[in-house]
Design a binder for these strands. Structure first.
Lengths: 369, 369
DNA sequence: TTCTACAACTTGTACGGTCATCTTAACAAG
DNA sequence: CTTGTTAAGATGACCGTACAAGTTGTAGAA
């Protein structure tokens, strides 16, 4: 027989049976040979057989029924299913998180999973602590929003452990640059930039100005969408009509440059801003200069933050928060069920939505039709 | 010996040893008697002793070391500590829940606990399902906001199971009438009513009108606070100056009665309303009658709902949401640590806070000082 | 003093058997 | 066809024994 030397007899039998169950040779609910049969077949005492069976019983692979026999456990294969999913976000009550978690909860509850909620307060040290903690628990999967910063991730080894334990995980909102190939769901910032720009162009704007952040991924993407919309509409892309700013000068440069360009006589009837914050500061500058929004110049924002609903009433971009949660949960379920990559129906990018308010004027000439 | 009839020998020994560990008679790290000593002492075979010890080993109470002996597990007492707390609310992303959960998370994370989040969508059937699910998991405690309705709780047996498994639980926001003696943290509605009333009185109001809901606990309590503030200020309580309404006529009666009483010539300079909804409808009635708020008559609300920030800008009552979460978590921790009731420092009532907006006018005569 | 060998004690593995209790199916009685 | 009995076969609970293997303290050698 397959009696490897060095191992104990009960251990050999135990492993043999476990392998039979895992491989499907013994199906769920099926009856195993009786203790006496096993003891005969393997030439070991019944006591030793019982020892092996008791281990499998502990681990949940089999269930013994007094007087009837021993049966393979109902829940197929790796019974390790705890039906718990860990969700790690940077915050809980702020920003989009409540609705995000709401979306995940809907999908996961429908599939009989529970959420273990953790937050990192956007700190790397806390993220490491949380991950360590999570590893001590029984979870079937993990959805994580990485703590910000482009610095390389120093607790890669923790993610390595997740791989080792075969716990699937899904990133949302962002991905560490070293893990770009890991499953993730991001906001389609390119599409967002495209949407606002297209909206302005469709409403007859012909002299656009773009203001984007140079030192982050989102800025690059939104700019990409801006360019795409321009080219699609047949306009040539003019680099002089784009203002690039950085984290350090984000509070001053967009406003100053807008004022400068306008003073130079550059014709502008619409400004695409990196986000709501920039848009609001631009609007204030325009008002100081005696320009009205949207009558003289239209302005768009991004993020649909609280300021977008304030005294400015910005047309802006929002991402469907619950949808993101649902998609992340569904992607994770696919990973848990080991759905092959090529069969997946879930898009990796979440489509942003345009929120129309009063910061854009329709400049189309009413001559057609 | 204590050998109860009916039980098996190994079970008796197992329980005896477990009790010794739990009670502290065998301390953490201490060496147990050897298998042979136990088998002699209890007049059972060594095999039976081993069976008992193996169960305690599985459950983590003891650790055997080959050649040295068997030792009481390092982690003190009931190691059953999973460090998981289940939190069941009616909703996740709506109303106060994000901040509530935030508060709990702060306290629980500080104490190395994790939150398993569940929601009932305010449905009794779902609550029962969630409770059943929770019972299959490893949790050290439970915070639950019961699904609404005064109907008697049909799944009492599920709570009975919690008691049986000695899982402590804390109610928030509400308590089932049959479980009034269970630990809970509620909003102090009496104090809320007291606060708004006192605020009006302190600002020189002398002819108050109260509008309360008759068929719920909160209405009774808020009215109680209203009366208390009046008496404290030396005013006699006039039942004719209180309008009671019910769920059915909540949309019409408050407005109609206000109009009626004012038309009768009742002098009124301030109205304490059951909640923001009532307050807003009352304000609209007053405006229709040509009265200005707050110039002619002051109005207060309750709940600080979205309407309170709208066109009316109500002075109202809000409860500190995070604080409630923190308190509930701390109360639960006390229960887990078995802090005796009389030593508890945590108040069972959460103190509401006054939010001052523009619906109350200062009517004090500026003669003093 | 230090090192080594050994005895004593510990848990781990494995064997053997006995009796109790439960399930099921076959069979006989009504 | 139903009901009750019985026997076979399953797991569960004990018992006793033997030997393997790891740990520790100690007596004796270097």
């Amino acid at each position: 027989m397959t009696q490897e030397s060095g191992k104990t007899k009960y251990y050999v039998l135990m492993e043999e049976l476990k392998e039979a169950i895992l491989s499907g040779r013994i199906k769920a609910g099926e009856k195993l040979p009786s203790e006496n049969q096993l003891s005969e077949k393997y030439h070991i005492s019944r006591h030793t057989v019982r020892k092996a069976l008791s281990i499998l019983g502990q681990e949940g692979y089999i269930v013994a029924e007094h007087g009837r026999g021993t049966f393979c456990s109902q829940r197929m294969g790796h019974l390790k299913q705890s039906k718990n999913i860990a969700v790690i976000t940077t915050y809980i009550s702020d920003y989009i998180f409540p609705r995000l978690i709401q979306g995940m909860d809907r999908v996961l509850t429908d599939n009989d999973y529970s959420i273990i909620l953790k937050n990192t307060a956007n700190s790397r040290t806390k993220e490491a602590k949380v991950l360590e903690d999570i590893l001590t628990k029984d979870i079937d999967g993990l959805i994580i929003e990485p703590a910000k910063s482009q610095i390389l991730c120093r607790h890669m080894n923790l993610y390595g452990l997740l791989d080792k334990y075969q716990i699937p995980y899904v990133f949302i909102q962002g991905v560490y640059s070293q893990m770009k190939e890991k499953p993730h769901i991001l906001m389609d910032d390119c599409q967002g930039g495209y949407l606002v720009t297209k909206y302005l162009l469709e409403r007859g704007h012909e002299n656009l100005l773009g203001i984007f952040k140079a030192d982050d991924f989102q800025g690059q993407e939104r700019h990409k969408g801006y360019v795409k919309a321009l080219q699609e509409a047949g306009y040539s892309y003019d680099p002089d009509r784009v203002v690039w700013f950085h984290t350090e000068d984000r509070k001053t440069k967009p406003g100053l440059m807008t004022r400068l360009l306008l003073d130079q006589g550059l014709p502008v009837d619409g400004i695409v801003c990196y986000n709501d914050q920039i848009a609001v500061s631009v609007v204030h500058v325009l008002r100081e200069m005696g320009k009205n929004v949207p009558e003289d110049i239209s302005v768009t924002g991004y993020d649909n933050s609280v300021m977008a609903g304030g005294d400015v009433s910005l047309t802006t971009i929002v991402h469907p928060q619950e949808k993101l949660g649902e998609m992340a949960a569904e992607l994770l379920l696919e990973k848990i069920r080991e759905v092959p990559e090529e069969k997946s129906q879930i898009p990796r990018l979440i489509q942003p939505e345009l929120i129309v308010r009063n910061s854009v004027k329709d400049r189309r000439k009413k001559e057609e039709n």
